[in-house]
Amino acid sequence: MKRASDLHDTFKRGLWRDNPVFIALLGLCPALAVTNSAINGVALGAASTFVLIGASFLVSSFRGLIPRQVRITTFIIIIATFVTVADLVLAAIAPAIHKELGAFIPLIVCNCLILGRQEAFAFRKPVKESVTDAAGMSIGFTIALVLIGAIREVLGNGTIFGLTMMPATFEPWIIMILPPGGFFTIALLLAFLAHLKARREARAAASSESKEVIR
């Protein structure tokens, strides 16, 4: 029973509490580069999910065989192999999206989130936990990509997933789907999360203070 709840917690951690993009600030390059629409976020998120789960599975399975001194190189080659697979599969089944994402599928190799999880988790833990952790982290990554993509798409183009969301009189803010919009969106999202955190801490402090008074 305890094991099951541990796994559940490992999975849930990546979704929000330790979200790779918003909390750990990892994998930012793809998170900003491709997210001028929500659908691109889904596509890159799915590719990254495949790579992260596959690499974590392999690294965790072979963790007894990989010498410590060359572990980083081994991780990178394993990751590059899965990226190649993802690149070729996406080119075959969704050529339009593959073309739009362009160089950013191969660039998954350099996503520090994926390398970071191999070093911090998969190299030390059994297969089941590593894959659970990889699934949680990559779904959290995808959530972040889709969130940023949706915000930029609705403000910059008036649509989400290509469906019109804004009234016809809405004048799209073109800047949001251009590079500066990516920087502004992540800056304001981070500030908003910091605001939420500050408010929660203030509330916690206030409630513990009032308890003191009652006593």
Binding site: L25, P179, F183, F184, A187, L188, L190, A191, A194, H195
Partner: peptide, 18 residues
């Protein structure tokens, strides 16, 4: 206070990008 650190760096980067 809420903009300190990464958020501010991104805002500066956005303006430079503009």
């Amino acid at each position: 206070k809420i903009m300190k650190g990464a958020a501010m760096s991104f805002l500066i980067a956005g303006i430079l990008s503009l």
